[in-house]
Design a protein around this nucleic acid. Structure first.
Lengths: 154, 154
DNA sequence: ATAATTATTGCAAATTATTTGCAATAAGAG
DNA sequence: CTCTTATTGCAAATAATTTGCAATAATTAT
């Protein structure tokens, strides 16, 4: 059983909740999708296996997962207004977004921590989390220019 | 005449556009507000001086300004879904957002550039822009805890 | 100045993204 | 296998933003 499904099940049981088939499918889809899906991305995937699933169930599940701290909700500065979701993994990581194919890549860099420390030192503010997002063209799109939105897959 | 109003006027004339009173007021409000206002923030300010102004005019003006590259549109990972706007100034800067009072602070740090270079070196992607956002408690809110949303002012 | 032209506005209605109320369904306890 | 009630599907509500269109107002030509 996947990580997310496992932690979710544990928490659900602890609070008298139920691991329904739709929740299980949404969780599995969330883990399979490497590229920070939107609610509709997930819906599109899950509906193949569960044709009666409703979008609001996806939203409700995502909201619960976020409250439990099992996933993070991100709003990137793209043209779409939709929110994106990612399983919350312990290590701090950051994102690169291709402005052409909209693919989301993750990367880590220890210097972000140094920047946070420097800012904290200067300002007396207490920093809880940080989000660094780079925008540009991914390797593929940089190589083949002027190609319209190809895919959302990773 | 303020910077934004000046550049906007120049571009408007160049493309047969008109600097209307509402546009001028919106531009002036945008420059006065240091704290990344939403469309409704601006609307609330401008309607004092121009009671017949409509929200859609604010949105239309902001959209045009963004297309012209005179302002940037930001979506922070906050609870509200509204977009925020800031005059686009040449120097790269980043943001700290107080999770309690929602105030937005700007700061600069040269190391972000180093991170971008390191990422580019590793990945063959072409980075165009970067956005680093820190979330936490500002000095004031850290000092006086559990105070509900006080003000949006800087 | 005045009239003619057309960019822009205000308003209402449409869209997009997300949430919610409620009756019907189905997990899980007994 | 039955009962309880958490969860779902559906439709309607809400929030944020955009758009169509007739009315208005800023320039241009007269």
């Amino acid at each position: 059983m996947s990580d997310l499904v496992h932690s979710a099940k544990k928490r659900l049981h602890a609070q008298g909740g139920r691991l329904t088939s739709q929740r299980r499918l949404i969780l599995e889809a969330l883990e399979r999708q490497a590229c920070h899906p939107t609610a509709e991305d997930l819906y599109a995937v899950v509906i193949e296996q569960h044709p009666r699933l409703n979008l609001s169930t996806v939203y409700r599940t995502l909201r619960w997962l976020e409250q439990e701290g099992l996933i993070n909700r991100r709003r990137f500065d793209e043209e779409r207004r939709q929110q994106r979701f990612e399983p919350s993994i312990p290590s701090e990581h950051h994102h690169f977004i291709c402005q052409q194919c909209k693919m989301v890549f993750e990367f880590e860099d220890p210097d972000v921590l140094a920047i946070i420390r420097r800012f904290s030192g200067r300002s007396h503010a207490r920093v809880a989390t940080a989000s660094l997002v780079l925008y540009g063209l991914c390797e593929k799109c940089a190589a083949s220019p002027s190609q319209s939105k190809t895919a959302e897959v990773e």
